[in-house]
Each structure stands twice: as structure tokens, then as C-alpha cells.
Simulated scan of single mutants.
Amino acid sequence: MRKAISFSLLLGLLAACGDGNPFTFGVTETPIEPPVVSDSGVPEKVQGNVASVTFVAGAPTISVQITSLDQGTIDAVYNRNPALNVPGYQAYTYQDDPLDRMFVAIVAESPDAAMQAAVVMDGGQFTKFFGGTSVTQVGTYSADTGLVSYAGTYAGLSNINAPGAELLPVPAGTDPAILPSQPTRVTGDVFINADFTDNTINGAITNRELTEYGTAIPDVFLIPGDIAADGTFEGSVELGDQTGVGNYAGVFGGTGATSVGGGVLLDGDFITGVENEQEYGIFVLAQCGTPGDAAICAGVN
């Protein structure tokens, strides 16, 4: 995985340049380790380095397995960190000591408890980072019929460096070249339409923002993909001008597909003026017309 330049440094350089941006930022992407496909069938491209995430909604800790450099897994217990919550999701963090990687995990469970999803990323160290998503269908699943909608919020993590308020303090004089970074959170809204007659899915992630900077970033669109008999799906992601910028995948849950969860990987040039940006994100949504659905569902007939 690749590590993007600090967003605050980017803004400073752009301001100094005046007209245009002659700089090239970041490093060439190098995969850290191909992971094993999760039980939910989420493709490797969206799963990234996350082997598994195990949690009980609202619990003080969660268990995360990240694929490591030696083809094994790093299994760690993350602690609740409400300071990094985003709407509809709970945050957890892990950092063993001040000079180790700092990981953020953001998780959610659907109102019907039929769907769980998590996004995990460290902020990068030594020019690389680990990151990925986990989506789990819980209990019995059966499809709905016809066209149905789902809505809610989005939670993502970006390799653009956050200011680092949640990092453990390091001794004065520590070489900046060896310091770990904190990932920036991304928030947004998700609206999905699923057609269980034709078994297709599409949607959009809008009102996207880099949380630590309060900076708006482009909306992205989930291009129509196929829904399999077990409720799994996958497809590509585009900007509004139809430029491809990534992939999405996930699974429906519950009797009558009352919920849906998905993972997103954005790895194209989707933020103007930034190079090598990459983002993993998740959505956990209730079907419109079911308990816990989003306010926007009021406009769905």
C-alpha cells in the first residue's frame, strides 16, 4: 500500500507555488501482502490487508487480524476511542508503543444485527501502510423482491496523514523519518438501490469530507454490479465524470435483505492536487421502510 503526503504539508506547498503545482508527491505503490479472501466473499482488492475483525456492538474492545510481512497475521486487541467516532460508527485504536504503527478501526452493526462491517488502517510508517475492510453477514439471509433502497452514513480512512492528536507522544529529538502517522477519517452519506428481480445494485457516496481538516472531497458513484444468490456483490467506483477510481463489494443480510454492508477501495486520482491518495471505507445500511432506516428514506416511495 502507498502512503500519501501530509495534507497540511500539501496545502502549504500549494500556497507557496501560486499558479500551478509542479511537485510530485508520494511513493510508488508496493503491495505488502496478498490477504486471504474473507468468509463473506469480499474480493481481495477491497479486503486489503484485513484478515478478520471480530466484535460485539458497543464492546470496549475488538479483535483485529492484519496480514503481516511474513505471510502470517498480526492479531491485536483494539480499545474504544470515542474521540474518533464518525456518525453511525464506533472507533477503536491500537498502538503498542510510540514508535510502532498507529491503527484506527471503525466498525458498525446494522439495526437488525444481520450485518457487521469494519474498516482498519494505520497512518503509515517507512513509506507504507496497512489497510482494508471486513464485511460479515450474520445469521439467515433471504433476498427481497423488486426494487428496494438503502441509506445511511459512510465511514472511511485515508492515507493522507491526520495531524496526529491520537498518537502516543515520542521523546524529544526523535528522528521524524521513523515516526508513525495517524490516518485521516472520511465521512459521507450513502444511498443504494438494489433490484432483486434483475439482481443488480448501484448507488452513490455523497457529502464526502476529510474529517480532520473539514475539507470536502468529490462524491463517488457505485456503478451497477451483480448480486449473487448468497447476497454478495461487487462492482467498480467512478467519479461524476465517469473516471474509474476504485472498487466496492459487500453482502446483504437478514430475512428479506433488511440490511446491507459493503467495503470500498478508492485508489485512483480522486482528490485534485494530491497524488498517491488511497482510501478504504465501509457502509452499513438499513433497508428503507425497516426499523432504524435513515431520514432520507422518507422520500422513497
Results as ranks from 00 to 15, higher is better:
Q95H: 09
I66H: 00
A83D: 15
I66T: 03
R80I: 11
G88K: 14
L84K: 02
N85P: 10
T67V: 13
Q71C: 06
Q95D: 04
Q65N: 04
I74T: 06
D96Q: 03
Y89D: 06
S68R: 10
A91G: 15
Q90C: 02
Q71R: 08
N79F: 10
G72D: 04
Y92N: 01
Y89F: 15
Y78K: 04
A91S: 15
N81E: 15
T93I: 04
Q95I: 07
D96V: 06
G72L: 09
I74G: 00
V77L: 05
D70C: 03
Q65R: 06
Q65F: 01
V77M: 12
L84W: 03
N81L: 11
G72R: 03
P82S: 13
R80G: 07
Q90E: 15
R80L: 10
P87C: 09
Q65L: 02
P87R: 09
Q90A: 09
L84Y: 02
V77Y: 06
I74R: 01
A83C: 06
D75V: 07
T93P: 14
S68P: 04
G72M: 10
A91L: 13
R80H: 07
Y94R: 11
D70A: 13
V64M: 04
T73I: 08
N85F: 11
L84A: 10
D75H: 02
Q90T: 15
A76N: 12
Y78T: 07
Y78F: 15
I66E: 01
G72A: 14
A91R: 14
A83M: 14
D75G: 02
T73C: 01
P82K: 09
D70V: 11
G88P: 08
L84Q: 13
L69M: 11
Q65S: 06
N81C: 09
Q71H: 12
P82D: 11
D96I: 02
N85E: 13
A91N: 14
Y78D: 09
S68M: 04
D75R: 05
V64C: 11
T73N: 07
A91K: 08
P82L: 02
Q71G: 08
N85D: 15
P87S: 09
D96R: 11
I66N: 01
Q65D: 12
Q65K: 09
Y92R: 02
I74A: 01
Y92E: 04
R80W: 00
A76S: 10
Q95Y: 07
I74P: 00
Q65P: 00
D70F: 09
T73Y: 04
Y94L: 13
Y78Q: 11
N79V: 05
D70N: 14
Q95E: 06
T93D: 12
I66W: 00
A91T: 06
D75C: 01
T93F: 13
T67E: 08
R80K: 13
G72N: 09
Q95R: 11
P87M: 10
V64D: 02
I74C: 00
P87H: 10
L84T: 00
